[in-house]
């Protein structure tokens, strides 16, 4: 994983992007949402920002075992 396809800027180096958080994936209340993870080794749903680029907030699906990016789209305000 060395580059990222930004929906606005096209392929850009990974260092321009910053990971924000893993999206909650354990059902339950606020505690589960904040503290617990069901670790999926092949499909992680995350928020990133193209911080050192166009600064857009992004929804990203990624395979943490291979580093492959499965989906990138703009965050629109309605979750996720």
């Amino acid at each position: 994983m060395s580059s990222f396809g930004c929906p606005f800027c096209g392929p850009r180096p990974l260092e321009e992007f910053s990971f924000h958080k893993t999206l909650p994936n354990v059902p339950g209340g606020a505690f589960e949402e904040v503290y617990l993870r069901s670790d999926d080794p092949t499909d992680s749903h995350e928020h990133w920002q193209h911080r050192y680029g166009c600064r857009a907030w992004l929804y990203v699906r990624r395979n943490p075992s291979t580093g492959r990016i499965l989906e990138v789209r703009q965050l629109t305000g309605s979750a996720p």
């Binding site: 617990l36 993870r37 069901s38 670790d39 999926d40």
Partner: peptide, 16 residues
Amino acid sequence: TGAIGRMLGIPLPVET
């Protein structure tokens, strides 16, 4: 450790 949590079906407060 996270993979063990997944194997057992017990979510853990951990990320790798």
